[in-house]
Simulated assay, not measured.
Amino acid sequence: MDGSSCVSGSGAGLVLTSPDGWTLEYALRFGFKATNNEVEWEAIITRMIIARHLEVQKIKASSDSQLVVGLVSGEYEAREDSMAKYLVHVQNLKSDFQVFKVLKVSRAENS
């Protein structure tokens, strides 16, 4: 997943790949102003909701946002209220899955 935020708007791209090799690709455009980190959170949440509807039990997600990955993994503590709210939402969604991991990747690997 990858997200972007700029003056003209924000959005994210998601690619879900099964162990068998089939893929689903999504392009998301958000109708609200968001920071790059908020867009990354929205992408994770959307991915989790789609996976839940597909009855997926194990998710391994990648993100180039060190902050988001650090918060989800418990390595970082949320200092901003908005980041704490996103984290709580993701933690609530995690209970729907047997395995949920978010891995940090470089921006080059995430495009």
Results as ranks from 00 to 15, higher is better:
Ser63Cys: 07
Gln91Pro: 00
Ser106Ala: 11
Arg52Gly: 07
Ile49Cys: 09
Arg52Asn: 12
Ala108Leu: 11
Arg29Gln: 11
Ser4Asn: 05
Gly3Asp: 00
Val69His: 04
Leu103Glu: 12
Ala12Asp: 00
Glu80Asn: 09
Asn92Met: 07
Ser95Arg: 14
Gly9Ser: 09
Gly3Cys: 08
Ser4Tyr: 11
Ser62Lys: 14
Tyr26Arg: 12
Asp20Gly: 10
Val39His: 08
Val39Leu: 07
Ser4Met: 02
Ser18Phe: 11
Phe97Leu: 01
Glu42His: 15
Leu28Ser: 06
Ser4Glu: 01
Asp96Glu: 12
Met83Gly: 02
Gln66Pro: 00
Phe30Ile: 03
Met48His: 09
Ala12Glu: 00
Asp81Cys: 07
Tyr86Ile: 01
Asn36Cys: 03
Met83Trp: 05
Glu25Ile: 07
Val99Tyr: 10
Gln98Trp: 08
Ser63Pro: 01
Glu42Arg: 15
Ala108Ile: 12
Ser8Val: 14
Ser73Leu: 00
Met1Asp: 04
Lys85Gln: 09
Val56Phe: 07
Asn110Ser: 06
Gly11Glu: 01
Lys104Ser: 03
Gly13Tyr: 13
Ile44His: 04
Gly11Asp: 02
Gly74His: 06
Leu16Ile: 15
Val56Arg: 05
Glu38Gly: 15
Gln98Asp: 14
Val105Gln: 03
Cys6Lys: 15
Met48Gly: 06
Met83His: 13
Ile44Arg: 01
Ser10Leu: 02
Ala12Arg: 08
Val69Asp: 01
Trp41Ala: 02
Leu87Gln: 12
Arg52His: 14
Thr23Ile: 10
Asp81Ile: 13
Gly13Ile: 12
Lys104His: 15
Phe32Tyr: 15
Lys101Gln: 13
Val15Asp: 00
Ala34Lys: 14
Gly21Ile: 09
Leu93Lys: 06
Ser8Asp: 10
Ala27Met: 04
Gly21Tyr: 11
Glu38Met: 15
Glu40Asn: 12
Ala51Glu: 04
Arg52Gln: 12
Asp96Cys: 11
Thr35Leu: 05
Phe97Gln: 02
Gly9Asn: 06
Tyr76Met: 02
Glu55Met: 10
Asn110Cys: 06
Thr17Met: 13
Phe32Leu: 12
Tyr86Val: 01
Glu25Gly: 07
Val102Tyr: 07
Ile45Lys: 14
Lys85Pro: 00
Arg79Gln: 09
Gly31Trp: 00
Ala27Ile: 06
Thr23Ala: 12
Gly70Ser: 08
Glu109Lys: 15
Gly3His: 11
Asn110Ala: 07
Phe30Lys: 09
Ile49Phe: 01
Leu14Cys: 04
